[in-house]
Measured scan of single mutants.
Amino acid sequence: MSGNGNAAATAEENSPKMRVIRVGTRKSQLARIQTDSVVATLKASYPGLQFEIIAMSTTGDKILDTALSKIGEKSLFTKELEHALEKNEVDLVVHSLKDLPTVLPPGFTIGAICKRENPHDAVVFHPKFVGKTLETLPEKSVVGTSSLRRAAQLQRKFPHLEFRSIRGNLNTRLRKLDEQQEFSAIILATAGLQRMGWHNRVGQILHPEECMYAVGQGALGVEVRAKDQDILDLVGVLHDPETLLRCIAERAFLRHLEGGCSVPVAVHTAMKDGQLYLTGGVWSLDGSDSIQETMQATIHVPAQHEDGPEDDPQLVGITARNIPRGPQLAAQNLGISLANLLLSKGAKNILDVARQLNDAH
């Protein structure tokens, strides 16, 4: 009898209710805020589980004197976190989706994509230029951005401005803007500013005609071990179906173009009346040469937790077992079709030249 009692006690200790789920994140304040929001949602869904947040620095956090596009290494903000995932030191990792490459290392998958916040870019102005827009900034004003995508589009749109690289986390960039006289304004992701509670610093939100956004911008991705079915089931509740389908289309477009950090590629997606609209573009580094096109596809946005595919093969690095396969494939095909259209119009040449120029500098 006593033996059975011990077995029952052991089973209770090993039951999922007692389990601590370890969540990996970057150390920056924004990353911690984003991770806290994901953990809060998981806690609400699984009140019996405990969650421990483990923060670590990544290569991208450490190399702050070089433009991201020049470092010449993929997975700048993800490699150390993936290493911890691989060694079973954490069970899942919360990322900004735009930091996750469209091809993940073997053994990993994006197990959830959370509801997207505003994906557009924002302009934050130096205190002396508050009330201005990019259009009304004085001639030769210097605007800071760490992104080739932003610089290429904005140089084309605002030729009277000069664009220079600015690195560091959000706090560091804002301090550089406010305390030094080098920059009249800087460009940042609206979602990051909003998550930090800095709505009052948003001086201008850039519309798609001015600057399309990065693939996955404004959404959070939760990376897990691809074979860890328990954790895949656990994080599945975080999937937002519309965000998922938009981001599958965007990531398929980028992957098929073979774009990345070192080339200016941008997108804009919208879901309306059962249609998914995808606009994508590529630019030369100075913005003088560009190709942009829009395509659409009829896609039914499923309700969360309709029964999805059981075999769960990944699409552009994403596993969404609780979302039907048909809409996911339709979104992926839309991204591939748009990429093929741009490639047929000469996108590869623009991107190759951009890559060579970026590598040469």
Score class of each variant (00 low, 15 high):
38 V>Y: 03
38 V>K: 02
43 K>Q: 10
47 P>R: 12
48 G>P: 05
49 L>C: 00
53 I>L: 12
55 A>K: 07
55 A>L: 10
58 T>L: 05
60 G>F: 00
60 G>I: 00
61 D>G: 03
71 I>H: 08
73 E>W: 04
73 E>C: 07
75 S>R: 11
75 S>Q: 09
75 S>P: 12
76 L>C: 14
76 L>A: 06
76 L>P: 10
77 F>C: 03
81 L>F: 12
82 E>D: 09
86 E>V: 09
87 K>P: 01
89 E>N: 13
91 D>P: 05
91 D>Q: 06
93 V>I: 14
93 V>P: 03
96 S>R: 03
99 D>Y: 05
101 P>G: 05
101 P>A: 12
102 T>I: 13
104 L>A: 09
105 P>Q: 10
106 P>C: 14
107 G>N: 07
107 G>E: 10
107 G>T: 02
107 G>L: 09
113 I>H: 00
115 K>Q: 11
122 A>V: 13
132 K>L: 10
138 P>K: 10
140 K>D: 13
140 K>I: 07
140 K>W: 14
141 S>M: 13
142 V>L: 10
142 V>N: 11
142 V>C: 13
143 V>C: 14
146 S>A: 08
148 L>R: 09
149 R>Q: 03
151 A>G: 11
151 A>C: 10
152 A>Y: 09
154 L>S: 06
155 Q>F: 11
155 Q>P: 09
156 R>A: 14
161 L>F: 07
164 R>H: 14
165 S>R: 08
167 R>Q: 09
171 N>I: 12
173 R>P: 01
174 L>W: 06
176 K>I: 12
180 Q>S: 12
187 I>W: 03
192 G>M: 05
195 R>I: 12
198 W>P: 06
199 H>V: 14
200 N>V: 07
202 V>S: 06
203 G>S: 14
203 G>L: 01
204 Q>V: 13
205 I>T: 11
206 L>F: 12
207 H>N: 05
207 H>Q: 13
210 E>N: 12
211 C>Y: 10
212 M>T: 11
213 Y>R: 00
215 V>C: 15
216 G>I: 00
218 G>P: 01
219 A>T: 07
221 G>V: 03
221 G>R: 01
224 V>G: 05
231 I>R: 04
238 L>V: 07
242 E>C: 03
244 L>P: 04
249 A>P: 04
251 R>Q: 00
251 R>V: 08
251 R>G: 04
252 A>D: 02
259 G>A: 11
262 S>C: 04
270 A>T: 07
272 K>Q: 06
272 K>L: 07
274 G>E: 15
274 G>H: 05
274 G>L: 08
276 L>I: 05
278 L>H: 03
283 W>E: 02
284 S>C: 11
284 S>I: 15
293 E>K: 12
295 M>N: 01
296 Q>H: 14
298 T>K: 08
300 H>S: 08
301 V>P: 01
301 V>A: 12
301 V>F: 11
302 P>R: 05
303 A>D: 15
306 E>T: 03
307 D>F: 15
307 D>W: 15
308 G>K: 01
309 P>H: 11
309 P>R: 11
310 E>F: 00
316 V>D: 10
316 V>E: 05
317 G>Q: 01
320 A>K: 05
321 R>F: 14
322 N>K: 10
323 I>D: 07
323 I>A: 04
325 R>D: 12
327 P>H: 12
328 Q>R: 03
328 Q>N: 02
329 L>W: 04
330 A>S: 08
331 A>C: 13
339 A>I: 02
341 L>F: 07
343 L>N: 15
344 S>Q: 07
344 S>G: 14
345 K>I: 13
345 K>E: 09
348 K>Y: 02
349 N>P: 11
353 V>S: 11
